[in-house]
Design a protein around this nucleic acid. Structure first.
Lengths: 336, 336
DNA sequence: TTTAGCACTCTATTTTTGTCAGTGCTAATA
DNA sequence: TATTAGCACTGACAAAAATAGAGTGCTAAA
């Protein structure tokens, strides 16, 4: 592609991002110091190459997915934050009381607020967490709460109703046993080891071993399947974007943004890579009509994913700029 | 109001609920065995009394808020569940493994699914919870997680970064002290007693008492302000209702349904009362264009609120029928 | 290689027109 | 006195027609 064509594509993408209206040839004359006919010729060429599209035969051009892709990979220059935005984010990271992971969550909330896109923070699925401690705390004669804590500091709890006559001291005994034997086991292998190592022992020593065994079993299996580590902010913010300003789009998006199974797809999407990744339209596996910008981190040994969901016409420069800034702040904190 | 007028109002409300179209006089001739002119006369009368409204001079009538109110208070007969709905709910309550409060949450999810309304479950704001136990679990040299458990079985946790050289054994000492002294204290008074009773003691005995004091203080104050006890399901379901089938309504509702401060209003709305309460339009304090049907329970000593959010033209018979059924199941479980 | 000029295309908006459901009122009727 | 038939009128809604405007592709000249 020739230099002028690149510049033209860049100008068209950036104009469209701002105006949300198909870009016509006249609008770019001044910038390129040539007549609209020349621009039209170049546009026709870019369309042939698949970087531009038309809504109908006599409309201006809009970028195709391929066009956006070329833009973000070759033409875009991430933006420096403006002072106001930077100040807001700085304030969050400056607060040393705040755990880094909480700072990130707050940060993404603010970014959603600032940009009118939806933001997502996904904690790791805790598969690589290891059991650190389980406590079984009696609430009253018939209920106990089991609290499981992992080496990465995740805590889950579950309340159980006891059958009448369950012996609390036996519960305590098993709890002690589990803490002695299974600490350090990856959390998703605990169930297995419970079955193989603990069950045989308590089977002999404990009267109501079935009930008690179940309590432990359930406490752990719940841990593995929970969703609590997902934060979505600004689900409604994205509706401010003109491309979703119609009932069907809104319904479709609202449904997807509510469905955790869909949100989780953002994390799993094919490639790993810890740099800023941009998925456009079909690539997102989430919705053909959005762009998702994603970044993964490892914090305290745990993987964390942050992502922005917006229209394909997302303000790439700004968002990438913002995420780069967040990145720098995180590195900064980790370095300490 | 005369008998026939009551019947007419009832017929109009129920027809409008089904058809979502202003109800004309002809449509009711057959039912009332009289001419449309007669119906028109009666309608005019009901309108004078404020029970009916017109969109414009020559449209059919729709119920006013006052009309709905009269309907739900005097005319409506709650519906018996159909077999299919009942079966779904029964299955949930029949599962004795499930904690009652989890069963209720699941139940409300299903109801949202069945009815295309949004459902809400609000746990109590844990003000009457008392401290049962606090554990401070070291994760590594520089981090600990504090786990607070209340007598009602609520658990919250928070991770803290330690300053270098913090003595873990001192932390354990304070933790023991708190557990000895403050167990049984209402959770929102703990901070105060921490200040008055614990601080003076540790001030003398503990070197880094400031750091350590802060950990405990923060662990408790976080507990008091958290939102985790709110479940909203079917935020997008309500968009299926034709009254919200336009962009502005959808945006407004989406924003409110996302905002926990707004959701919490449902619980606080003026009167207590543990029977099924119906708030219509302006009364809801949530949005003038919805109805909220609400029921409060006390379960294991904690207050719980369930609510359905739908259009003012909500299917009152069905929803009240459903909530009555849920009510019966809960009573049934509590009785055990 | 660039550009002016022109015919053409499609959208979007406004205007016009017709249809229809429903009303209120009056006068006749049971 | 309550009911009803009849009629003129209203406003929403939908389809059709008219109009304006932005933008294109192509051709021929610079």
């Amino acid at each position: 592609m020739e230099e002028r064509q690149k510049n033209l594509l860049k100008a068209i993408v950036e104009t469209y991002i701002k105006t949300v209206k198909p870009v016509g040839s006249k609008a770019l004359c001044a910038k390129f110091k040539c007549s609209s006919a020349t621009i039209r010729n170049e546009m026709a060429h870019l369309e042939e190459l698949g970087y531009l599209e038309k809504n109908h035969i006599s409309s201006g051009r809009i970028p195709s997915e391929k066009g956006y892709k070329y833009y973000v990979e070759n033409l875009m220059e991430p933006e420096k934050l403006n002072g106001k935005d930077m100040l807001k984010l700085q304030t969050i990271f400056a607060n040393n009381e705040l755990q880094l992971s909480d700072a990130i969550t707050q940060c993404m909330e603010i970014i959603s607020e600032m940009t009118n896109y939806t933001s997502v923070v996904l904690g790791s699925s805790s598969g690589d967490n290891m059991l650190l401690q389980i406590n079984v705390i009696p609430l009253n004669a018939s209920q106990v709460v089991a609290v499981v804590c992992t080496d990465k500091g995740h805590v889950e709890n579950k309340t159980f109703n006891l059958k009448e006559g369950t012996d609390l001291s036996e519960l305590a005994k098993v709890s002690e046993l589990v803490n002695k034997r299974l600490v350090g086991t990856p959390i998703n292998e605990v169930s297995e080891r419970l079955e193989l190592e603990i069950k045989p022992i308590i089977q002999k020593q404990i009267k109501q071993y079935e009930t008690i065994y179940h309590i432990f079993y359930d406490a752990f299996s719940d841990f593995v399947n929970n969703n609590s580590n997902i934060h979505v902010s600004g689900r409604a913010k994205i509706f401010e974007q003109p491309e979703y300003n119609n009932v069907d789009e809104m319904k479709r998006l609202a449904n997807k943004l509510e469905d955790m199974a869909f949100i989780k797809k953002i994390e799993h999407s094919s490639d790993p890579g810890d740099e800023v990744k941009i998925y456009i339209g079909e690539e997102t596996e989430f919705d053909p009509n959005v762009t998702i910008i994603r970044k993964k981190y490892t914090i305290d040994g745990e993987e964390k994913t942050i992502a922005i969901i917006g229209p394909k016409r997302m303000d790439y420069q700004r968002i990438v700029g913002l995420l780069n800034y967040v990145d720098a702040e995180i590195d900064n904190r980790k370095g300490e």
